[in-house]
Structure formats: C-alpha cells, structure tokens
C-alpha cells in the first residue's frame, strides 16, 4: 500500500507541482491532464471570486496562472480558502490594492 501511496503522490506532483513525469507514463498525456486540472481550477476561481476577475480584468489569467503554478492546493484546504490565499498574494505583490476595510482608520479615543 505504501508503494501505491508513493506512486500516487509522484503522479500528483507531476500534475500539480511541476514534478517529473513518473516512469512509464506518457508525458504528453500527463501534461494534457495537468493543463485540464489547471483550467478547471481557474474556472472555479472565476466562479467563486468574480470580485478578483473584475478587479484584475485581463491581468486575472496570467496572474492566476503564475500563482497557481507555484501554489498547488493543499489537501484539506477548500477552494474558497485557497482563493483567499490568492487574494492575499495579489495584495502582497502589489497587483491589487488593499481592501477598503483594511485602510479604515480606527476611531480615536
């Protein structure tokens, strides 16, 4: 069973995290599947976070692709939580202005 676990993990790394294609797999098909998984993840992102697609416009796709390639979704992390990480990354890297509420000043005493 541990052998299968390692082989599944290696395939998933190849599909999501740029890992090497495991021996015996057709590299073209692994790349095709990787592209399909990425496109699905991006489609879910567009569906769940229209605020980000609206704010970024044409920049959404390249920025999402850049972020997603370097940040595969971890097990146990929901799509929504994953996309919150994307939003934080966008802000931290200057692609998105901070949200209004985070700029609101606290009332003075």
């Amino acid at each position: 069973m541990s052998d299968l676990a390692g082989r599944q993990a290696a395939l998933v790394r190849a599909l999501l995290a740029g890992g090497p294609v495991p021996p015996g797999f057709d590299p073209a098909r692994v790349h095709l599947e990787a592209a399909a998984l990425h496109a699905k993840r991006r489609s879910v992102a567009q569906h769940l976070r229209p605020d980000l697609t609206d704010a970024l416009g044409d920049r959404f796709r390249p920025l999402f692709d850049e972020w997603a390639g370097a940040h595969p979704r971890r097990s146990g992390v929901s799509f929504r939580a994953d996309l919150e990480t994307f939003a934080t990354w966008l802000t931290a890297n200057g692609h998105l202005r901070r949200r209004r509420w985070s700029r609101t000043r606290l009332p003075r005493n």
Binding site: L4, R7, L15, K40, V44, G76
Partner: peptide
Amino acid sequence: AFTGAGGLDSGHLLPVPRTREALDV
C-alpha cells in the same frame, strides 16, 4: 478514482492503476 495524494488536492477525479494493490485500497 482518487483526487489527491502527498498532501496535494487536484480538485478532480484521477484514475487509479488497475492493479490488485489499488483494488485492495
């Protein structure tokens, strides 16, 4: 199917090898 492994979630259905080991799992 399986959807992820090694701490990563693919968000989709992936095939399993059609072996006895995979059947047992």
